[in-house]
């Protein structure tokens, strides 16, 4: 299943090219806009260079950890090929997770060539805490996959899930801080962002990298708690979902 996910990520050459171009363009555009904003009125908080490095990293991470398992799972439920997934001796969740991990690995391979370009455009320097960054990044990725699997299971209750998938995508991107760093979120929005698990997908690793978070122990402890809690929720949800199985189309 890992292999399938990997091969699918690399199946279409035009797709690979466009993804790379999009990533470089997005980082470049963010740089232009924020430089202009800061040029007009120096903002409080992060210095410009740190902000640019943060945004570049957060977006690079978002591309690298982007999950496609939700749309794949929903498509297979819609057309009924989920039958075969359920008929396998290997558990459904394990198949989905392997598929996503393989797909991410494939995605990393195609992103690899543009990473130097992005780092250059985003003027990224060496990480403030390399091991801490990797640790929080991996934990964030596990949380991202768990959340995606949870949304995938929604398909067993709802036939049409594109709205839920869109909601999940927007919320996770916004609260991960890929567009605006969480430090700039006002009042209750900041509290909410702080409480939700999405910040581990973007903000936390990037902030560790640029040195805004210097002690990672607290963040790691809470991230691990999320990983365990979401795993429990997944098992529970799946045991309920499989009782609802109805294969569509005869």
């Amino acid at each position: 299943m890992i292999r399938i996910g990997f091969r699918l990520a690399l199946a279409y050459r035009s797709n690979i090219l466009i993804t790379c171009v999009t990533l470089v363009a997005q980082v470049f555009l963010l740089r232009m806009i924020w430089t202009s904003v800061y040029g007009a009125r120096p903002a409080a908080g992060l210095p410009l260079e740190a902000l640019l490095a943060y945004l570049t990293l957060a977006n690079l991470q978002a591309f690298a950890t982007h999950t496609i398992v939700v749309s794949t799972a929903h498509h297979r439920i819609r057309v009924g090929t989920v039958f075969f997934d359920l008929a396998r001796p290997v558990g459904y969740l394990r198949q989905l997770a392997s598929f996503q991990v393989g797909n991410t690995l494939g995605g990393l391979c195609l992103l690899a060539p543009v990473v130097p370009v992005v780092l250059l455009v985003g003027s990224i320097t060496a990480p403030a805490d390399g091991p801490g960054y990797l640790l929080t990044l991996v934990l964030g990725y596990v949380i991202a996959v768990e959340l995606a699997l949870l949304i995938s299971l929604a398909g067993f209750w709802m036939t049409e899930t594109s709205a839920v998938a869109l909601f999940h995508r927007l919320v996770s991107q916004f609260f991960a801080g890929t567009m605006v760093p969480l430090t700039y979120f006002p009042g209750f929005l900041g509290v909410l962002a702080e409480a939700l698990p999405f910040k581990y997908l973007g903000y936390v690793p990037a902030a560790v990298y640029v040195g805004q978070i210097s002690d990672v122990s607290g963040a790691v402890a809470i991230a691990v708690a999320w990983v365990v809690g979401l795993a429990g929720l997944l098992v529970l949800t799946w045991s309920r979902a499989r009782r609802r199985v109805v294969i569509q189309g005869g």
Binding site: M1, R3, I4, R7, L8, A11, Y12, V79, G80, T81, F83, F84, A87, R88, P89, V90, Q95, G249, G250
Partner: peptide
């Protein structure tokens, strides 16, 4: 299981990949 109306093969990948997948899922 074979369903004439739907396929267990991965649409975008060469046939051999789907067969390899079956080999690994069934050990």
């Amino acid at each position: 299981v074979v369903f004439g109306q739907r396929s267990q093969l991965w649409w975008d990948l060469p046939l051999i990949e789907s067969l390899r997948l079956v080999g690994s899922l069934y050990d």
